[in-house]
């Protein structure tokens, strides 16, 4: 096992998540992309902690914070989706864009 391997996996997860976040139309699907990106960050954080600085707990705390950020992002994302859906009967970003105008 080496740091390279885990960072490579993390990069792959991050990239797949990025693809989803960019390509999907639905807010909920975009959130799934974001979640995958955070997933990659968590793995990278855990690997960095183990292979580089196991004595300091910053890497561990980073993973915990990533978990919390993910939950907050989800709660707010779902709330916003519900609000948009109630107002406009859609949950697509393309259609929600004209909410600005």
């Amino acid at each position: 096992m080496s740091l390279d391997l885990f960072l490579l996996i993390a990069a792959a997860l991050f990239s797949v998540g990025l693809y989803g976040a960019l390509s999907q139309q639905s807010v909920v699907m975009i959130m799934m992309g974001l979640e995958l990106m955070v997933n990659g960050v968590m793995l990278a954080g855990g690997a960095y902690w183990w292979f580089v600085a196991p004595a300091s707990l910053d890497g561990q705390v980073l993973v915990l914070v990533a978990l919390v950020v993910m939950a907050v992002e989800m709660a707010m994302g779902f709330a916003v989706t519900t609000a948009i859906f109630r107002a406009r009967d859609v949950d697509l970003t393309d259609s929600a864009a004209d909410l600005r105008g």
Partner: peptide
């Protein structure tokens, strides 16, 4: 964009000389 990101990140993961392990958990 996603593939580009993966190439950049992956190259970073493999090429950056990561510091060696210091300390014990």
């Amino acid at each position: 964009i996603a593939i580009g990101t993966f190439v950049v990140l992956g190259a970073g993961a493999l090429l950056v000389p990561w510091p060696s392990r210091t300390g014990e958990p």
